[in-house]
Design a protein around this nucleic acid. Structure first.
Lengths: 247, 247
DNA sequence: CGAGCACTTGATCGCTTTCAATAGCTGTGG
DNA sequence: CCACAGCTATTGAAAGCGATCAAGTGCTCG
């Protein structure tokens, strides 16, 4: 359906994630080295990017679209353990096997680096190693934040938490502020939301309906969401209404 | 009760966590620099090491004992988001505020470094920065592993998962192997286990009783556990019985 | 128009929580 | 030595929340 932007980016200077990705701190000469080992790959929504347990031959950054990290038990229960948005890094320098499935949740474009050359480059480029540590610490914070959601929040609070995270990320990407009503499209199916929240898709659907009935959110169609009062949503999420606005 | 080993370690060469902590890859001269900014601190079980939101003036490694990272909601619900064992690192170079409470779960000894000097040393010591990245990636894996436990496992599976993790860590510390029955003491109260697992302490108690009745574990007193068949426990945890043995 | 998919809604079931009582252990003080 | 407080842990009964099973709706695409 979508036209594939297969190889349309080539210059790092024009890159939409230039200032946030693993290359954020790189200077011109470092970028040149990166350009020599990079290549773009596109995936369609639903495609698996990396299978858990596979050898990983590349690492890379999400340029556009959304990918998810998921774990699956033998009996089929699945838990999403990460949501990868533009500028997020995929891969584990120094590790061989992939610990999770990486799946394209929407159409996805990635900026990939061959793993070996990237590792060598990283070893002699503190700007990259440092940025990667920063990003990994952020991911760890996000994962721990999510442990509170999974372990202690009610279904309604879980949904509100997810909506508030998506709303904030969307605001930070589109540079609309957080004042006034927030409007965005849900990038996840009800099932993907359920996998992220540790719920069933039926419960997700019911709680979204309930939040809608109570006026916390408005829906047009199934995916287009308006949040009239962000403070209200964050109360529903059980979060401190103050602070956290700069995430 | 316990005699405080306040300042008894001073030489890194004799340090029990020398080969696993953030200093693992350091050479002799790097260790000397670290020695100049390090100091030991002891905490009694129950003491808070760092309060969420506080400025952190130091970073450091757990030398002995166990600490936990916890998050608390306004209404008092708490979720443990990390268990810090000997050699684990506390602190976030480059960040000021502490995102979580750090509490000594048992009597605890930490090897601390003043934050500023440590950051400066890290900036010019790739061995340290590299090891810290490795350790952070491991923590991220552990956190994601735990998200599956919190989101998708039953109470019984959660208890079995926790017991198997503690058993494996204990085995790796004491260097007893994983063959034959495993014996260890639970370092956590029922309430701390509940906070880790996203359960109530009553449910923890009930499920431990059930595992005992079914012969999956044996108990002497409240804390001393024997696991006659590790494979059986891992089946109860819902984990793949193969693999994962090298964690 | 009908198949397929994402989603919604209803009815019921069952696991975990909640509320409550009890047991066991340790330390204190009469 | 025993009584008692304070704490951790166990166990029971009842309630509630989310899961499960089951229709049914609305949309897109062939």
């Amino acid at each position: 359906m979508s036209s594939h932007p297969q190889l349309c980016h080539s210059d790092c200077d024009d890159c939409p994630i230039r200032h946030r990705a693993v290359c954020a701190h790189c200077d011109t000469s470092e970028l040149e080295e990166l350009e020599q080992i990079k290549y773009y790959r596109s995936f369609e929504a639903g495609q698996t990017v990396i299978w858990s347990g596979d050898q990983m031959s590349f690492v890379g950054s999400v340029v556009s679209g959304i990918a998810s990290l998921t774990q699956t038990m033998e009996d089929g229960r699945t838990q999403m353990v990460g949501l990868l948005l533009p500028s997020d890094f995929v891969g584990r320098p120094g590790r061989d096997g992939a610990p999770y499935d990486v799946v394209a949740t929407t159409d996805l474009v990635m900026c990939c680096f061959r793993k070996k050359p990237f590792e060598e480059l990283m070893a002699r480029t503190p700007h990259i190693a440092h940025r990667l540590l920063e990003m990994t610490l952020d991911e760890l914070d996000a994962a721990r934040e999510w442990m509170l959601v999974l372990g202690r929040k009610t279904a309604r609070e879980k949904i509100a938490s997810l909506l508030s995270i998506i709303a904030r990320r969307d605001a930070s990407l589109t540079k609309r502020g957080m004042s006034g009503p927030m409007v965005f499209d849900l990038p996840l199916t009800r099932e993907a939301m359920a996998d992220y929240l540790g719920l069933t898709l039926e419960t997700v659907s019911r709680q979204i309906s309930a939040l809608k009935k109570d006026g916390v959110i408005h829906l047009e169609g199934k995916r287009h969401v308006t949040i009239p009062d962000m403070g209200r949503l964050m109360e529903e999420a059980g979060d401190d209404t103050d602070g956290g606005f700069l995430v």
